[in-house]
Write a protein that binds this DNA or RNA. Structure first.
Length: 476
RNA sequence: GGCGUCGUACCCAAGUGGUAAGGGAGAGGUCUGCAAAACCUUCAUGCGGCGGUUCAAAUCCGCCCGACGCCUCCA
């Protein structure tokens, strides 16, 4: 089979055909860096990572571009006009750019913990103002704009297919029903390409432009930067489902108005992570960061595993019960892989695998080719680890091969080396010795009493034919 | 009002016409003095409800019930 993906353009499963053989240009919408990212925000980045890894696994050379939105729409969630960047900057006596850098660093710390590979190109909006201005000039030269109330607008009436992407019906829709309509707009769907006046006072970052000093509209950055790094037409663009109606619709209009050609061939949109009560958001509460999960004793990869267990186009309901389940599953996975490694040391190379393992790998590949179905692919990972009569080296080899896409760190697993206080270790060893003596003399009561005592010190005993081992389960 | 999604075992979650993946939890077993760990086995005649199409439906169609997302410079 070949790679098929669900293209928002057409809303159907389509065979993937890149513009250039064996090469893929992929643009994934990046973060807005005016606050910490919550775990729902992290879902698309793990997904983009899987897409990139899977494409590379399939043999494509992938250029993955991600933007950092550090200018242009850095306001609060409640549309109150308060610029949170400015507010935070004043509070901390820092510049706006320092704040952006702070949250950018926090973002990459989270994604790194989640084993998300760094995109090929990471580009900041503030470093591409010239490209944006140049793009807007092209749009203007092609006659798609008008200037009103101090701002340059994109005129959607000049772009007949506007709204086709999101299947909007422009006539009978109450656009922007929840916010005040901008009186300067000819059409409610028109959007700003360049602001010199906005309802927000004191925009922190401003630049000179042919239309006056101001700042770019939000949508422009993705068009300008994607074209700079991937060309005027490219293969893949991904982002959250919420961006279909506005952000991506506008990006398509302005991009194609500028170049006169089709901009993106395939669009991938991920669904949300939701809480029981609904979507996770800052205003609605339930704002969980990756750090809060780490503080609660989970590992970042537990969360990655949880995400891999659901298809990217399905809403995933977050709960600690589900995260516990993911953690248990991943621990078990790690234990199995570690045991295999202890047993054989060397994994079988992919090309030397036995038929049963190759079949699993083929099914794994097929799952990913089917619109990146990580849940099905994960089932194949478990399948190969439980395959009867398959040599351990083959299990290990197949698992490591699959992990190139899963990114669960299976290939790098090491037996955890726990540093234990020597005095504490000596004390435990003495008790264990005493228990061993008791066991040898079949004094079960004393042996059990000693085990209880050891347990209360936060240590778990494991008897085996070769002797008793122990591990710390909690800090004493 | 417009656009869109979902409802599968105790929990998470695949499956898009051919007779219910996987994981977690639970249960049973092997091992063990007993535990623990590990491993093995097991776990939905049924997929929100009612109709319909079909040789065949969780999968297609209709209606109903329920949950949710977007239309805000939230992924």
């Amino acid at each position: 089979m070949s790679l098929r993906l669900f293209n928002t353009l057409g809303r159907s499963l389509q065979e993937f055909k890149p513009l250039k053989a064996n090469q893929v240009g992929f643009y994934g919408c990046g973060p807005t860096v005016y606050n910490f990212a919550h775990i729902g925000n992290m879902r698309p980045y793990v997904f983009h990572d899987v897409v990139t890894r899977a494409l590379r696994y399939f043999g494509y050379q992938v250029t993955h571009v991600m933007n950092i939105t550090d200018a242009g729409h850095l306001t609060g969630d409640d549309d109150s006009g308060e610029d949170k960047m400015v507010k935070t900057a004043i509070e901390r006596n820092k510049s706006v750019m320092e704040i952006a850098e702070y949250y950018t660093a926090a973002f990459f710390k989270d994604t790194a913990a989640l084993n998300v590979e760094r995109p090929t190109v990471v580009c900041k909006a503030t470093e591409h103002i010239a490209e944006m201005i140049a793009l807007i000039q092209r749009i203007e030269a092609n006659g798609y704009t008008y200037f009103a109330g101090g701002n340059l607008y994109f005129d959607v009436s000049k772009f007949p297919t506007y709204g086709d992407f999101a299947r909007l019906r422009l006539d009978d829709q109450q656009a922007s029903s929840r916010i005040e309509v901008d009186a300067s707009k000819k059409n409610p769907y028109d959007f700003v390409l360049w602001f010199t006046k906005s309802k927000f006072e004191d925009q922190a970052l401003q630049w000179d432009s042919p239309w006056g000093r101001g700042y770019p509209g939000w949508h422009v950055e993705c068009s300008a930067m994607s074209m700079k790094y991937l060309g005027e037409s490219f293969d893949l663009h991904a982002g959250g489902i919420d961006h279909v109606a506005i952000h991506h619709t506008n990006e398509i209009a302005q991009s194609e108005a500028a170049t006169g050609r089709k901009w993106v061939n395939y669009w991938l949109h991920n669904e949300f992570l939701v809480m029981n009560a609904g979507k996770m958001s800052k205003s609605a509460g339930g704002f969980l960061t990756l750090k809060s999960l780490l503080d609660a004793g989970y590992e970042a990869l537990d969360y990655r595993y949880l995400l891999l267990g659901a298809h990217y186009r399905s809403q995933l309901t977050f709960s600690y019960e589900a995260l516990d389940s993911a953690r248990s599953a991943r621990r078990s996975l790690n234990e199995r892989v570690l045991a295999l490694r202890d047993k054989v040391g060397q994994a079988t190379a992919p090309e030397a695998l036995q038929p049963a393992a190759l079949q699993r790998l083929a099914a794994f590949r097929e799952a990913l080719e089917n619109d990146f179905s990580t849940p099905q692919a994960l089932a194949e990972l478990w399948g190969v680890l439980k395959e009867q009569n398959l040599p351990a080296a083959d299990m290990l080899g197949a698992a490591c091969e699959m992990d190139r896409v899963f990114g669960l760190g299976l290939a790098d697993l090491k037996t955890e080396i726990v540093t234990v206080d020597p005095a504490f270790a000596a004390k435990i060893n003495t008790l264990v010795q005493a228990r061993t003596v008791a066991k040898q003399s079949k004094d079960w009561a004393r042996a059990d009493a000693l085990r209880d005592e050891i347990n209360t010190l936060g240590v778990l005993l494991e008897d085996s034919p070769t002797g008793t081992t122990w591990k710390q389960t909690a800090r004493p």
